[in-house]
Design a protein around this nucleic acid. Structure first.
Length: 450
DNA sequence: ATCGGCTCGCGCAA
DNA sequence: TGCGCGAAGCCGAT
């Protein structure tokens, strides 16, 4: 079974000497339901060469802490044991990815490198640097999106309403069942040793004061369990319950999706099976899982300013500029925000939920970010603080969804203009009165009180 | 409780 | 060129 060519981007396609095929795993940290893995396996079988999987670990990454590294590394330990069972070697390289990949590729005389797709700048720079160093074949496969990012659209989309029809049109082509992975078919004629996990943990230069959380179990197996649990217990009523921060109404899958421990396509396939019983819930969920997630990748891929003021739409930049000198009733420092020391108990509660659990409720993420804009001296500072806190504490930090969510809140990205008001200009405003009309604000504040 | 207005610009119909 | 409508809202009038 051949994978759809539209998932594959050819970085380099030079004829090479025969050699093992490398899957450079990066964003999609799973064995099952992984188009990049499947493509690499297909190349290996065609060339009658062994397949090897490599992950390159950097000692620090965009402010990630032990909370996120721990979640990721436990997932990778499971990848190692899953691959071992089918005799596929798994390596973890330590250091600068382009350098390490180049060395490794030469060392095992690889025939081709396959990697997965990621719209973030840092990942694209790694791949571009490696492309210049390699001679041979180098491919990128979009294993994260259901409709591949570049197949869905060739430009930055203005809103959900512009990308939605494009994705829906292509879903029948891409939302298909995955082929099964196969055990290693060809002999490896080089030696490899087991991963020294202790050495890996000691290589990290990260903030270990942000602790791991215990309400969620990392890894591919746990991810499949969590998906089953969501479908069984919370899919029914999802449409109504997801926006109430006092209810456990969200899927809870985003950490798994972020690290690629779970495939969004698998989630869509399984959830879709329940369309006839829970049509409204399934449609509301798929809108978030597919349209909104893929819109985030679209934004980051086509807008290189996805994490700065200059990435906001022109009307929002103009409007926010006109309100730069507006008086702020409250101005807090990064540290005051971080310690949840504002005058607003609702905001403080959401910040404590973030710090404590690594997962602020989706509805509160909007209110939280909008208040950071309202209570800082400039939109640039607000953006910096919001991204810093999001990436430091959220299990799913550093994700296109996070950048887009913050840009929506602060800069009107994928939103429309609203009537002019202080500080916000024409960017949509939110306040606690709106929250009070939708959920029990006191109950939520109490749940996350000091 | 419910409703209209606020306001911008994309994409499509014409 | 005109027109409908959009990622989660707010506000004041009724």
């Amino acid at each position: 079974m051949k994978i759809n060519d539209k998932r594959v981007k050819v970085f380099l396609n030079e004829k090479t000497t025969l050699g093992p095929i490398i899957y450079w795993m990066s964003r999609d940290q799973r064995v099952e339901d992984n188009w990049a893995f499947l493509h690499a396996q297909e190349l290996a079988l065609e060339a009658k060469q062994p397949l090897v999987v490599v992950f390159c670990l950097v000692s620090e990454f965009l402010g990630a802490t032990m909370r996120q590294y721990g979640f990721m590394l436990k997932g990778l330990e499971e990848v190692e044991s899953k691959l071992k069972k089918i005799h596929i070697p798994f390596y973890i390289l330590l250091g600068d990815p382009p350098d390490e990949l180049e060395k490794f590729t030469k060392k095992i005389k690889a025939g081709a490198v396959v990697t997965d797709f990621d719209p973030l700048k840092i990942k694209r720079n790694w791949k571009e640097t490696l492309r210049k160093k390699l001679n041979g074949a180098f491919y990128e496969v979009d294993a994260h999106n259901i409709v591949p990012c570049t197949a869905a659209s060739n430009k930055q989309e203005y809103g959900a309403y512009t990308i939605r029809p494009k994705i829906h049109k292509l879903l029948p082509e891409f939302l298909t069942e995955f082929p099964k992975i196969k055990p290693q078919a060809h002999k490896i004629d080089f030696s490899f040793s087991e991963i020294n996990w202790k050495k890996i943990y000691s290589s990290l230069k990260i903030d270990s004061t942000v602790e791991e959380v215990d309400w969620i179990t990392p890894g591919e197996n746990a991810a499949h369990q969590a998906l089953k649990d969501f479908i069984k217990n919370r899919l029914h009523g999802y449409d109504e319950n997801r926006n109430d921060p006092n209810l456990d109404g969200q899927s809870g899958l985003s950490p798994y999706l972020h690290f690629g421990q779970l495939s969004a396509q698998r989630v869509a396939l399984e959830v879709s099976k329940h369309r006839s019983e829970h049509r409204k819930d399934v449609e509301a969920f798929l809108e978030e899982l597919i349209i909104r997630r893929e819109l985030s990748d679209n934004f980051c891929y086509y807008n290189h300013k996805y994490d700065s003021f200059a990435g906001f739409p022109a009307w929002a930049q103009k409007s926010l500029n006109e309100h730069r000198d507006d008086a702020r009733q409250f101005v807090y420092t990064k540290s005051e925000f971080e310690k949840a020391k504002t005058h607003d108990e609702l905001w403080n509660a959401s910040q404590r939920q973030l710090v404590k659990t690594g997962k602020m409720h989706g509805y509160m993420r909007m209110y939280w970010a909008k208040k950071v804009l309202e209570w800082t001296a400039s939109p640039e500072e607000a953006l910096k603080i919001a991204i810093y806190l999001n990436d430091k504490y959220e299990l799913d930090g550093r994700d296109p969804n996070g950048y887009v969510g913050i840009a929506w809140s602060l800069g009107g990205v994928h939103d429309r203009a609203w009537f002019d008001r202080p500080i916000f200009g024409k960017v949509r405003f939110m306040n606690d009165r709106g929250c009070a009309s939708k959920f029990d604000v006191k109950g939520y504040s109490k749940k996350y009180s000091v």
